[in-house]
């Protein structure tokens, strides 16, 4: 598929993506007592994080709108392909 530049950030299907700082990343891993590999993944070239300037091993915090909890927070680790 040819990828042309489209601004899709405000699409209703896309929840908010935030990049965590190194410190926040540490506290997250400590809180749940997990390693980075155990987090769900997101590809580096995923359209939703193109303007966040991410590199592999960064953690993305995703704030989803949830019909059951109102708002739920999810984390994904950036990976290469």
């Amino acid at each position: 598929m040819t990828k042309k530049k489209i601004n899709i950030q405000h699409h209703i299907l896309i929840p908010k993506h935030i990049k965590l700082s190194e410190k926040e990343k540490e506290t997250l891993l400590d809180k749940y007592n997990i390693t980075l590999q155990q987090l769900p993944k997101i590809l580096k070239n995923d359209s939703a994080i193109q303007n966040l300037d991410v590199k592999p091993e960064d953690v993305i915090k995703i704030i989803r709108k949830s019909p059951t909890a109102g708002e739920s927070i999810f984390y994904r680790v950036v990976t290469n392909v």
Binding site: I8, H11, I12, L13, I14, I42, A48, R64, R76
Partner: peptide, 18 residues
């Protein structure tokens, strides 16, 4: 708001979370 029912296309264009 424009959407499709093809999940793969959505993943490609709008990302996994979408």
């Amino acid at each position: 708001r424009t959407i499709t029912n093809n999940i793969f296309e959505i993943a490609n264009v709008l990302g996994v979370e979408a």
